[in-house]
Design a protein around this nucleic acid. Structure first.
Lengths: 219, 219
DNA sequence: CACCGGATTTATCATGCGATAAATAAGATT
DNA sequence: AATCTTATTTATCGCATGATAAATCCGGTG
């Protein structure tokens, strides 16, 4: 088949420069590996792209390098830098901030490709998942706990370990809603708003009782 | 190498009957596939068992059949039938029942092999995950909500959809604690008890406000 | 001891994989 | 129009995979 003509449609395609073409391949790789797993073949990926398999090796030295680009694009590029500000903007009520943040955050992660890539790479034991979760803790959960402490009139904003652990539980509860709907049930996210509001409210209420020691467990 | 002598140690092994040998293979397959994924080779599995690869086909018609046995053993055989009774035993306080149940439930699912098998099979899109979650809902979450309604003095115990959805969130929060520790962080579960108690307490408190409509969201 | 039957291994097939080298096609440059 | 450049394809290598058939081993039985 001639170049500049896609395999599937036979349509003429504009010739892209190296970087654009590379990005096109990465985008297709995300979709492909998210659905089929990283063990799927470069031949099948090339077939879906309408090119031959050796062409991929013109743009990426190895399959593992291509997968690395997939990680980078999904985990790093989709992270939104305004999340910090959303959480910390004290001109708004804390409840509103947390709900707005999780609305925005789940717009990013409640996507089939994001979740499946995350699950696949986590099972491979790649270090990037650990790094991502470290970032969640530092830039999301710690700040949330700090804002809660501030809203509750505490002077020392330093998060207690049990506060962070419980923030993980709230976070996980919301996240697992997405996993269940998108990965297991294949359904819609029409109760996302309810889940976020309920989780945030329950978290805030429980966090105080956790702190002032009325909870039966202390560390 | 002669039969009855393991490949690795050269030790003599007692000759097992067909069913015992089969179970031995399944147990090894669980460990192996949990760690390496279902795409890993039957040759490597056989190597770890100290037998040759074609021997597996004496006990299982195909790799897919062996994997089916893995599912069956992990999902069905490890389910404990006394969980229903633990949740419904009204001679004990509800809080205690829920905590005891989740202690027991997480003893089963907070295991690296269980979780990884579940994640791998879920990503494969096998139907067994959906069936498992259906069972969780019917035999765990619905009963929990019913017991909460009973404890709150309601006559109609029929769970409302938002009650069940929120029960899923609590369940997911606890579950995700295990995933995070066992899959991503590779750490210990030393805060399991705290996570369960906090989640259960927050759930019970939030469930009432959810029900009597003080929550800002209604369906 | 001789023999039978099932457990296990050896040998092999067809297929698919990641990767590389060489040939070709097509747009850009002069 | 002729030439250069590079994107893309064709051909191929070495290796691993799931699966099958035939040979071999070995414990149990007479």
């Amino acid at each position: 088949m001639a170049s500049g003509v896609t395999a599937q449609t036979g349509q003429r395609r504009k010739r892209l420069n190296f970087d654009e073409r590379r990005q096109e391949f990465i985008a297709a790789a995300i979709e492909f590996f998210a659905e089929e797993g990283f063990e799927s073949s470069t031949r099948e990926l090339a077939r879906r792209l309408g090119v031959t398999q050796p062409l991929l090796y013109r743009y990426f030295p190895s399959k593992e390098d291509l997968i690395g680009e997939v990680y980078e694009t999904v985990y790093v590029n989709r992270w939104r830098d305004d999340w910090d500000a959303m959480i910390a903007d004290r001109s708004l009520p804390l409840r509103e901030r947390l709900i707005d943040f999780y609305d925005s955050y789940t717009d990013v992660v409640f996507r089939r490709d994001w979740m499946r890539i995350f699950l696949f790479s986590g099972l491979k034991g790649v270090d990037i998942n650990r790094r991502y979760l470290g970032r969640v803790r530092e830039r999301i959960l710690d700040p949330i706990v700090r804002e809660c402490r501030h809203a509750d009139g505490l002077d020392d904003l330093t998060p207690l370990p049990q506060e962070v652990e419980y923030a993980w539980v709230m976070h996980g509860g919301i996240y697992y809603y997405g996993v269940r709907k998108l990965i297991y049930e294949g359904g819609t996210l029409d109760r996302k708003r309810f889940v976020i509001e309920t989780s945030v409210d329950a978290f805030r209420a429980q966090l105080s009782t956790l702190r002032d020691g009325t909870s039966p467990i202390r560390w």
